[in-house]
Design a binder for these strands. Structure first.
Lengths: 208, 208
DNA sequence: AATAATAGCGGACAATTGTCCGTTTGTCAA
DNA sequence: TTGACAAACGGACAATTGTCCGCTATTATT
């Protein structure tokens, strides 16, 4: 049976990713067009589009390393403080999450636009909400929220639903707005988010 | 001095809006291109683009009537229940808001994409966050939240910040996800939102 | 009414996104 | 080696978005 694969395919993929990374850092994600990436990498448009149908897909790939680091951070963090109260763990995860979102605003915006927009056009399976990063975040938050819920320290709420809402409120454009137009530092945003979204779910800190 | 204005300009604007409305309801907002609208209305592209640089701008105009009705609803609603507790008023506004967002998903998605995306490209003054609808919502919610805060019934939080977060969590794509993929009815979404975002801000319902 | 002046129309044009198909190139069988 | 086969390359092509500029039509003036 004949199932040949080119060995240079993988090399081209890496060439494309490297080129895109370069152009993005040089000119900014928004100013770089798909054709520009293809041309700079010296490949045909189809070669690029066959791998990444939209800039968002490419960004998702580029952010992968960063996200894996972030994921490991979260897992280590959770392991290192597994004996602390669940509220503290939630806060820690949230803080790390906001920092990640702030660090990666440029790529995240492109991802958000492409994937969310795409979702709107066709009923593709590949949506923002089914991407591995989203699912990891959602599952991590849901677990912590469920534990909080089960521990009886909170008012009643639906953990999975609440996790969706938490992530929605961290949309890159929201954060950008709060930071640039509204003049809040990342720390201030974290503090307010904890105060507004998380702490109130827990029953009075100064117990009866 | 000579400052002639064409009187047919306004008529063309209305022709464009009517045409767009028709095409949108016939084929869906996403499937209709700007040129298609111009052609169907029998005007040049520039005539269309001079009025609305993006589909989102057009949608913002189209939604205007609906939004004004919504705005009046909210104002009447608030007037009719001005003597009820602020928590109840907040809940009522929120419920009406979610219903509006669910009814107008199609247009709101297009608006969201264009305005939020545009914001990302150039530092235009005209952003999603400075559009009249956003500002009305934000100011209405902020007032109610501030009143709640001042009445001493709540935990401490920043009303304006919280209003931003509330609106962010109602992004059309989030609602669509919760409704279509997650299978929640509008009522269920409202209930969970109130339970997750609003009620917890208020001190124990069963007072000490 | 005739004229001057300009607001603003319209379609051609440029740029970007996304697709298709003829051709290349690596792999396996003989 | 060589030949056959298909994975996958590349650039031409179509579609959509967004811009520019010559020309028309309306209005104020005489």
């Amino acid at each position: 049976m004949v199932t040949p694969k080119r060995k240079d395919a993988q090399q081209l993929t890496e060439l494309i990713l490297d080129t895109a990374r370069d152009l993005f850092t040089k000119f900014g994600v928004d100013s770089v067009s798909m054709h520009q990436i293809a041309k700079a990498a010296g490949v045909g448009q189809a070669t690029l589009y066959r791998r990444y149908t939209q800039k968002g897909d490419l960004c998702l790939e580029l952010i992968d390393d960063h996200f894996n680091r972030f994921k490991n951070d979260i897992e280590q963090l959770l392991a290192s403080i597994h004996d602390q109260p669940v509220l503290d763990r939630l806060k820690a995860v949230f803080r790390r999450l906001v920092v990640f979102a702030s660090d990666e605003t440029a790529l995240l915006k492109a991802i958000h636009i492409s994937l969310v927009h795409n979702r709107c056009i066709e009923n593709d399976k590949r949506t923002f909400f089914t991407s591995p990063p989203y699912m990891f975040l959602h599952s991590t938050l849901t677990h912590l929220l469920k534990e909080s819920q089960d521990s009886g320290q909170t008012v009643p709420f639906d953990p999975a639903f609440t996790a969706h809402i938490y992530i929605a409120s961290l949309a890159p454009f929201t954060l950008q707005h709060l930071s640039e137009d509204y003049g809040m530092s990342t720390d201030a945003i974290v503090e307010q988010l904890l105060r507004t979204l998380i702490c109130p779910l827990f029953k009075p800190n100064n117990p009866e």
